[in-house]
Simulated scan of single mutants.
Amino acid sequence: MNTVNETMRAVLFDRYGPPEVLYAGTLPKPVPGPGEVQVRVHAVSVNGGELHGRAGELRLVTDLMARGFPKRVGLDFAGEVAALGPGATGPGVGDRVWGALGRTFGSLAEYVVVRPRQIALVPQGIDLVEAAALPVGAVAVTALRDKAGLRPGERLLVRGGSGGVGHVAVQLGRAYGAHVTALAGGRTLDFVRDLGAHEAYDYATTTPSELGRFDVVLDTVGTEHPAYRGLLAPGGRMVAIAFDLRRLVPSLAYIAASARHGRARVRAFSGRPTTRLLTDLAGHVAKGELRPAVDRVFPLEEAAAAHRALEAGGVRGKIVVKVVQNPVLAPEQR
């Protein structure tokens, strides 16, 4: 990736801390190198990992991602292709795309440069603000279909059913023919049921022992792995995509030990959406099996307020930050 003298707006922070450390600054506008694609970003969603990164709870990782300050936020994005580097393939200039960065933050900016394998065409029928709510949710496809092998008629438990990945997993569980039970905050239970959950329970007042047995448990929360692993029926599978940062070493050690001991293994992974996964996700949108859920929208200058909103909890789907005010219309809307 090359840069020129042009600048762009981006959300930055100069020290670890609360949401108030975020501010709208300027950076050199990135120019696509060979095989790269420049995307004009329209909207970005806020993800839980960014909150931990900004607060300094992942500083060993974030310092490896980008040394020194200022650091950046933003993982997924939706926008339009603005320019192609030499030899770049895939979507063309003007195409609406969605995607996610690799192993770094920084999509909350006016432009990003990515590899074609990190993006796909946005499905018709949704705008770019809605589209920004879904890319990271593509990991639910990997979790349920590829890692757990969820089958029709099986019982699925989704922890964090109203969140960014959870609200996608609930809908995909129904699409895959499973009986879906979701744990979520008390204020979001009706929302989760509306997404398709057959049963929804308040995590604050429901203990694991009250839930019964499940063929698949998808954990987007990261705590109490042993208790939820204990709910697995014979042949059951548990997939964890979150970890307890306050007890990270014991948490990871437990997951590793489950591969060798006990009746059920806890599968864990940390993945990024790819063109194939994003295209699969778009297929579910096109079939009416998946819809984005945008709780609130903030302008770029209010990124700190967006982080505060996610930290406060009770979010239905995703918090989205709108980078540009002039919408990029889908072909059928032009």
Rank of each mutant, 00 (worst) to 15 (best):
N2L: 09
N5H: 13
E6K: 11
E6N: 13
T7Y: 07
M8E: 08
F13W: 00
D14I: 03
R15H: 10
P18Y: 00
E20C: 00
L22C: 02
T26F: 08
P32V: 00
P34G: 05
E36H: 09
V39Q: 11
V41A: 02
V41L: 06
V44I: 10
S45T: 11
V46D: 06
N47H: 14
E50Y: 05
A55C: 13
R59F: 00
R59L: 02
A66I: 04
A66D: 14
R67T: 08
F69M: 01
P70Y: 02
P70N: 04
L75Q: 11
D76M: 03
F77H: 14
G79C: 12
E80K: 07
L84Y: 09
G90N: 10
G90R: 07
G94M: 04
V97E: 13
A100S: 15
G102Y: 07
T104I: 13
L108P: 15
Y111D: 14
V112M: 06
V113A: 12
V114C: 12
R115E: 15
R115S: 15
Q118V: 05
Q118H: 12
P123G: 05
D127H: 08
D127E: 07
E130A: 15
A132Q: 08
A138Q: 09
V139Q: 10
A140N: 00
A143R: 05
L144Y: 01
L144T: 04
R145V: 13
R145N: 06
R145S: 11
K147W: 07
G149T: 03
R155V: 01
L156R: 12
S162I: 00
G163D: 06
V168W: 03
A169M: 04
Q171A: 05
G177K: 11
T181E: 08
T181W: 04
A182T: 10
A182Y: 02
A184G: 13
L189P: 15
F191S: 02
F191E: 01
V192P: 15
V192D: 04
L195Y: 03
Y201V: 04
Y203C: 07
T206W: 09
L211D: 11
R213E: 13
F214G: 15
T220Q: 06
V221K: 03
V221F: 10
G222K: 07
G222R: 06
E224S: 14
A227Q: 15
R229D: 00
G230L: 01
L231T: 14
L232H: 02
G236T: 02
R237Q: 12
M238P: 03
M238A: 06
A242H: 09
D244M: 03
L245R: 13
R246P: 09
S251D: 14
A253E: 14
A253W: 08
Y254L: 13
S258A: 03
A264T: 04
V266E: 12
V266N: 10
G271V: 05
P273I: 02
R276I: 00
D280V: 09
D280K: 07
L281Q: 14
L281G: 05
G283V: 11
L290Y: 07
L290R: 09
P292A: 09
P292M: 07
F298K: 01
L300Y: 01
E301D: 15
A304V: 03
L310W: 10
L310F: 12
E311A: 14
G313W: 06
G313M: 10
K318M: 11
I319F: 08
I319C: 04
V324F: 02
E332K: 10
